[in-house]
Amino acid sequence: MREWICVSSSDLPAPTPPQPAALLRKHGLLILVHIAALLPLVLLISDWLQGRLGFNPIQAATFRSGRMAILLLLLSLAITPLNTITGWRTIIPLRKWLGIYAFVYVCVHFFIFLVLDYLLNPGLIVEAIFEKPYALAGFLAFLLLLPLALTSTRYAMRRLGKNWKRLHRLVYVAMLLGVVHFAWSQKSDIREPLIYGAIVVVLLVLRLPPVRQAIIRTRQRYTRPPHKEQPS
């Protein structure tokens, strides 16, 4: 194995195109995320086109896109705590894509509201957004997520430096607004948004530095016996 290090680059065989199997190993999880995140959108559009959204298709499409946005943003927020608990670094790149897809569904949701539901009628839209607290909460969540989606590139991360992280902490505010938006839109039974809200709180607690440190210490005690050190 050690000989590898001594081989000069000129001695290496010409680089071969990456093998599908290797690609899958490296990016498998990410590919899965792309498929899992896009599939509901494809299904939503095909159900719409085939008239399979029931008797109130606009409301059904609104609910489905909104729920997907909340679930994907929750998953995105779960990545860092999951990494803390398990130590899996391979899941870190998923965070960004889950967040981007969450924003895609927010946009689909907002599009349905503006174009399909309110037919771009300015009077009704202004009334709906600014007079109804639930709609306002959703709209604010959209406004908060917009700069986060726009600065999700490597370039923006470099440019913003430390501020990038500060800016992206807004995702929690957006997430909570999204859950409130969902809860307020429900007539009375708010069990589903309550569950999401509880998950957000747990995810936030897991990020508190003392909690996080304690989790890391516990994990290291169990997963890294001193006699069998493994590179992570």
């Binding site: 539901d117 009334e127 607290p133």
Partner: peptide, 19 residues
């Protein structure tokens, strides 16, 4: 008289896509 959480100014007739 709007409902506190949603407008009552318009409605969707089931079977139609407009308001």
């Amino acid at each position: 008289v709007p409902h506190p959480r949603w407008s009552q100014a318009s409605e969707r007739r089931i079977g139609e896509l407009d308001r």
